[in-house]
């Protein structure tokens, strides 16, 4: 299992921030996932080994946090907020639109592996609702048309 130099540098630095090794676990898992796409058995074994934890310890933590996943996802994970502020400004319609446009439902991935779709809870964009995140990018004050443009932009990014 090889991570990027940036990952290794950050990991080494983070270990110096805490009195216990285990404390780096949550951010390390997310950074590892960013590089590997998902937390595979191999990644879990590697991180457990580095932190002197059992694989079960690591899996217990992974299953708790909603951003961490042990299953492959699309290159672009489209996360539309469904919580109250977004709901009041058309989140249901936006979710329906995305599902139709991408042809997948909640937690699904397109056959070409480009997009996955997820309804998520509050992402802290309440005053700019409805909102979505594609990977870590925020997209706010959305309409169906704006969402189409955004998805098309990500599609062209790959080509």
């Amino acid at each position: 299992m090889r991570f990027s130099d940036q990952f290794e540098a950050r990991f080494t630095e983070m270990l110096t921030h805490y009195p216990t090794k285990r404390s780096v676990l949550v951010p390390t898992l997310l950074y590892a996932q960013d590089e590997a796409g998902f937390l595979s058995d191999e990644v879990i074994t590697e991180i457990a080994g580095r932190l002197d934890l059992t694989e079960l310890d690591v899996r217990n933590v992974i299953s708790y946090y909603s951003m961490l996943t042990t299953k492959p996802r699309g290159k672009f994970n489209v996360q539309v907020c469904r919580n109250i502020s977004c709901l009041l400004r058309g989140a249901d319609e936006l979710i329906e639109h995305c599902e139709k446009k991408l042809g997948i439902a909640h937690k699904g991935t397109t056959p070409d592996g480009l997009f996955s779709f997820e309804e998520v809870e509050c992402i802290g964009a309440c005053s700019w609702a409805p909102a979505a995140q594609v990977n870590y990018d925020f997209h706010e004050n959305l309409t169906a048309e704006k969402m189409d443009r955004i998805l098309d932009e990500y599609r062209t990014k790959v080509q």
């Binding site: 285990r22 932190l51 217990n60 933590v61 946090y65 909603s66 509050c122």
Partner: peptide, 27 residues
């Protein structure tokens, strides 16, 4: 001063769960 990033959990905003999470555990 050190930074620390979470990984998605409302419950972790509760002070004692926040500490659990910072210690590398379920919140």
């Amino acid at each position: 001063v050190y930074w620390h990033g979470g990984a998605g959990a409302y419950e972790v905003g509760e002070e004692s769960a926040l500490m659990e999470s910072l210690e590398g555990k379920r919140g």
